[in-house]
C-alpha cells in the first residue's frame, strides 16, 4: 500500500484532540441485519470512535460500508446490535434534540411553509409561536432564504430545500449535527456552494459535526478528521487528521499542495481492496 506522506499511522489522531472533552463516544458498536433469505449480514464490525466537542469529523467510504448506519446509530434512530454510544456522557437510547440530523432526502414537512418548517423544532421545544418564528427568520437569513419564508417545499430547488433542512435543524440548537450525505442529491455547482455555506455556518458556531459522505474532496475541504471506512464488513480503515488552516477557502486550498496530497492519499486508501475481501 502506498504510504501517504501526510497520513502517519504512528500518530493516532486522538492525540491531536485529546485535551477537548469527547462529545460522542462510540464503543464496540456492531450492526447485524437479518437477511430475508435467512442468515445474518454483519454491516458494521466493532467500531470505536471518539469525537471531540466542536470537531468536524467526516465518515468517508464506498456505498455499503455502513457509514450511514453508523450515523443512524449515533442519532438513536437505529439500535446497535452490540456496543454503545454515549453523547455528552449519557448513553444513547433514542433520538433527542441534542443530535440534529440532516438527510440527503431533505425530509422537510411538505405541508408546512419554509418558515413553518424552521419554526417546527422551537415550537416542539415549547417556544411561543412568535419566538419560534423570530428564531426561524434569523436562521433563514443566515442561509439566505429570507425571501422564501412563505414558500412550500415543493416550490424550492434541491439546494434551497437542503438550506431549509439545515436551518430547521439548527433552529432547535442541537449540540451535534448528524449530516447524512447532505449534498449527495445536489448538482455539482450547488454542492460546492452549500459546502462553502456550511463551513461559514460551522466556523461561527463550532458545533460538533458528524458528516457522512463518499466524496473525498468534500471530506478534506470540510473536516478536522476523516474516518475512512471499508466494507464487508463495514469498519474503520484509517483515521486521517486534516491539518489544513482555517478558515478555509476553496480557491486557496485548490492551489495548496497539502490539500491535493490529502485528496490523492485518501483516494488511494479507498481504492485499496479491503484486506479481508472475500473472507
Amino acid at each position: 500500500m502506498a504510504q501517504a506522506a501526510l497520513i502517519d499511522p504512528s500518530h493516532p489522531p486522538e492525540q491531536s484532540t485529546a485535551p477537548r472533552p469527547a462529545a460522542v463516544e462510540i464503543a464496540g458498536v456492531t450492526k447485524t441485519f437479518q437477511r430475508r433469505t435467512g442468515g445474518t449480514h454483519l454491516a458494521l464490525a466493532p467500531i470505536d470512535l471518539a469525537v471531540a466537542d466542536g470537531e468536524f469529523v467526516s465518515i468517508l467510504g464506498p456505498s455499503g460500508c455502513g457509514k450511514s448506519t453508523l450515523l443512524y446509530i449515533v442519532g438513536g434512530f437505529v439500535p446497535p446490535s452490540t456496543g454503545a454510544v454515549t453523547v455528552g456522557g449519557r448513553p444513547v437510547t433514542g433520538p433527542g434534540p441534542d443530535r440534529g440530523p440532516v438527510f440527503q432526502e431533505f425530509a422537510l414537512f411538505p405541508w408546512k411553509t419554509v418558515l413553518g418548517n424552521v419554526a417546527y423544532g422551537p415550537r416542539q421545544a415549547g417556544a411561543s409561536k412568535a419566538d419560534a418564528e423570530t428564531k426561524a427568520r434569523g436562521l433563514l437569513a443566515r442561509v439566505g432564504l429570507s425571501a422564501y419564508e412563505t414558500f412550500y417545499p415543493k416550490e424550492l430547488s434541491g439546494g434551497m430545500k437542503q438550506r431549509v433542512a439545515i436551518a430547521r435543524t439548527l433552529a432547535y440548537d442541537p449540540a451535534i449535527l448528524l449530516m447524512d450525505e447532505p449534498f449527495g442529491a445536489l448538482d455539482a455547482h450547488t454542492r460546492l456552494k452549500l459546502q462553502n455555506d456550511l463551513l461559514a455556518l460551522w466556523e461561527r458556531d463550532r458545533k460538533t459535526v458528524l458528516f457522512v459522505t463518499h466524496a473525498v474532496d468534500e471530506a478534506v475541504y470540510l473536516s478536522d478528521r476523516i474516518v475512512v471506512m471499508s466494507r464487508q464488513p463495514g469498519r474503520i480503515k484509517e483515521i486521517v487528521p486534516v491539518d489544513l488552516p482555517r478558515p478555509r477557502h476553496r480557491d486557496e486550498l485548490l492551489l495548496d499542495a497539502r490539500y491535493q496530497r490529502y485528496v490523492i492519499d485518501i483516494e488511494r486508501l479507498i481504492e485499496d481492496p479491503p484486506e479481508e475481501a472475500g473472507a
Partner: peptide
C-alpha cells in the same frame, strides 16, 4: 410516509 421525515420529528423530541 418518508421514514426520515418521522426521524426528523423524533429528533425534535416528538
Amino acid at each position: 410516509v418518508e421514514e426520515k421525515m418521522i426521524w426528523s420529528a423524533r429528533a425534535m423530541g416528538m
